[in-house]
């Protein structure tokens, strides 16, 4: 198991941030086109740096805690790292934006646990005040797959 340590750390990063996508409705994984167009340049630039740094001996990897699987001179763990870390940043950003813009309650309601929350109260008692509908999870705007 020891040799999977680096990969396990990366898997934990994915697991810990996964609720942001659904519970806080970050919608990062659900915009695959935009995600790909974001990841390619960031991944490319940092992998390039990594290739050079490894070649020049700036850093090395413990053979005990990595799988030994490599692409060229880069351990696959590093390639995973350059996907996972930007993903974590994007998920945090989107979840944070939702909360700043709509508040916690509306954000949670729009998320996957929204169906378990009590429905939005019908206006706060003031006669005539209409409470705008909070979109139900099923009716959220359709995704742009760009």
């Amino acid at each position: 198991m020891d040799r999977y340590q680096y990969l396990i750390v990366m898997a934990l990063c994915v697991l810990v941030t996964l609720p942001l996508e659904f519970v806080l409705n970050a919608r990062v994984y659900r915009r695959p086109g935009r995600l790909l167009r974001t990841m390619v340049p960031a991944f490319g630039a940092f992998v390039l740096w990594d290739v050079v740094a490894i070649r020049l001996g700036h850093w090395t990897f413990s053979p005990e805690y990595t799988t030994g699987w490599k692409v060229g001179n880069i351990p696959v763990e590093e390639l995973v790292f350059f996907v996972v870390i930007p993903l974590c940043a994007l998920l945090s950003y989107e979840a944070g934006s939702n909360i700043l813009r709509d508040g916690w309650v509306a954000t949670l309601r729009a998320g996957s646990l929204g169906r378990f929350l009590t429905p939005a109260p019908p206006s706060g008692g003031a006669a005539g005040a209409t409470s705008a509908p909070v979109p139900a999870p099923g009716t959220a705007p359709t995704e742009e797959l760009v």
């Binding site: 935009r34 870390i85 930007p86 950003y93």
Partner: peptide, 18 residues
């Protein structure tokens, strides 16, 4: 790494009506 990713992501979001 994170700033580069966020910068591109947010810029692309301008063309993303949803």
């Amino acid at each position: 790494l994170m700033t580069l990713a966020l910068s591109i992501w947010v810029r692309l979001g301008r063309n993303d009506p949803a």
